[in-house]
């Protein structure tokens, strides 16, 4: 045990906080309001996860992601998902090119997935076949085309957007795809006070220019710092109980889960809870994850991992309500007699 280690940890934590705030400040130049959404996107980025942004059109989802790409100085690519898009359009394919000698050869052309920040816009408009092209990239951080495997450069983050309305002609994301997103953030309407600033910035004569405040290397370092945050045992237990409480017929499941939930969270949910909780703990100035950190990230982590059954849909039960009930139930049990 060394005090220098503790000092180094404190320094790392301080660097993390400073970088995080700098990135957030730069993104906030473009995004007015939406503090929680910006925090959520940055937390997911620092935790090494992917984000699914859901909101009605015109709320700045695409602009948020593109602003983040500019602020981080990362390679950024945007994929506009359409119904006629094919997996090769995402991963890349071999094209016939003419050589110098006049011959022709097949040359692999990387798809837009090979980037640090990938904006999958309107991801639910592509067919499941095309959507599944993202599965390997999001989980394994690599793309396999034929016999060629391409390791994706870190940091790699997919930020997908989808529109909760206009469901006609769309393909809801399968559970395997949803589970790979660390967060599902719901972008709501801005506050009344934010409207003036939005109008002033977007309808005025001056353009907002974002400068790069961080590099890919800095982001990777921040990710390592996040990974080094310790988790006390009781917090691990709490994360496990939270995830198990979303699973029907488990010993921690409240009544609403047993009655209205068809599918609960997977162990990926517990991983996401702890990773996001670590970022939250660092941002809160602590060196260990607390129960409060898990509670604060439980909703974006678990809301897309809870599948409501038909009975729940008919009763108007939504995942947010289920997660809220789960938090209350598990919180009550943590106070049980030892």
């Amino acid at each position: 045990m060394s005090s220098s280690d503790a000092d180094a940890a404190r320094n790392d934590a301080q660097v993390f906080i400073d970088t995080f705030q700098a990135i957030k400040g730069e993104v906030s130049k473009m995004m007015v309001g939406q503090e929680e959404v910006i925090d959520g996107v940055l937390i997911a980025l620092m935790a090494g996860g992917h984000v699914l942004l859901e909101g009605v059109p015109g709320l700045g989802k695409t602009m948020l992601v593109s602003s983040l790409g500019n602020a981080l100085d990362l390679t950024f690519s945007r994929i506009q998902f359409t119904p006629d898009m094919m997996p090769a359009d995402v991963r890349g394919t071999s094209v016939l090119v003419e050589t110098e000698g006049g011959g022709h050869e097949l040359q692999f052309e990387e798809g837009p997935i090979v980037a640090n920040l990938v904006l999958a816009d309107e991801i639910n408009r592509a067919t499941p076949k095309t959507q599944s092209a993202l599965l390997e990239a999001m989980q394994e951080r690599q793309v396999t085309v034929g016999k060629r495997t391409i390791k994706l450069a870190e940091p790699f983050c997919v930020m997908a957007t989808q529109n909760p309305v206009e469901q006609e002609g769309t393909y809801p994301l399968p559970e395997a795809q949803l589970d790979r997103f660390l967060f599902k953030l719901v972008v709501g309407y801005p506050e009344e006070a934010d409207y003036k600033e939005i109008l002033r910035r977007t309808t005025g004569s001056f353009d907002v220019e974002l400068k790069s405040v961080s590099k890919a290397k800095a982001v990777n370092k921040m990710r390592k710092i996040v990974r080094s945050v310790p988790v006390p045992e009781h917090v691990e237990d709490y994360a496990i109980k939270l995830v198990m409480a979303t699973q029907p017929e488990s010993r921690y499941a409240p009544r609403i889960v047993n009655e209205f939930v068809a599918l609960g969270s997977s162990p990926r949910g517990a991983q996401a809870l702890l990773l996001a909780g670590k970022v939250k703990a660092l941002l809160a100035g602590r060196f260990a994850v607390a129960v409060e950190d898990l509670q604060s990230v439980a909703l974006p982590v678990l809301r897309h991992r809870v599948l409501i059954n038909f009975s729940g849909l008919s009763e108007g039960v939504n995942p947010e309500k289920v997660v809220s009930e789960v938090l209350g139930a598990v919180e009550a049990r943590t106070g049980a007699k030892a």
Partner: peptide
């Protein structure tokens, strides 16, 4: 205290605490 005492009590009993764990104990 947001679980600081609980976390420190947990980390104190670990054989080789990391830098963050030490920082948590000191915190």
């Amino acid at each position: 205290l947001e679980g600081r005492l609980q976390a420190a009590d947990d980390f104190v009993h670990r054989p080789l605490p990391t830098g963050f764990e030490l920082a948590a104990i000191e915190d």
